[in-house]
């Protein structure tokens, strides 16, 4: 196991490279979801405001 993580001496380059990639993969999922959720919320708020405006 230790041998695996040592990666033949390349550990200091290899694992940061994998970490950077992992961060990008996770971050882009979160960014996309947040954008979609945010857009949905904003639309809901706007419709609520419109409905209030039309009833009063």
């Amino acid at each position: 196991m230790t041998e695996f993580f040592a990666m033949g001496g390349y550990a200091v380059f290899l694992w940061p490279a994998y970490l950077v990639t992992l961060i990008a993969i996770v971050a882009n999922v979160l960014i996309a979801r947040r954008a979609h959720d945010g857009a949905k919320q904003e639309a809901r708020r706007r419709f609520d405001l419109e409905d209030e405006g039309s009833t009063t």
Binding site: A32, A35, H36, A39, K40, E42, A43, R44, R46, F47
Partner: peptide
């Protein structure tokens, strides 16, 4: 997959006033 989720967000933001969004939400 990621692009399609972003695309949905982008469409909602662009269509802001469209009535179909009401149905969808």
């Amino acid at each position: 997959a990621v692009m399609l989720v972003r695309l949905r967000a982008e469409i909602l933001r662009r269509e802001r006033t469209a009535s179909w969004i009401r149905e969808v939400l």
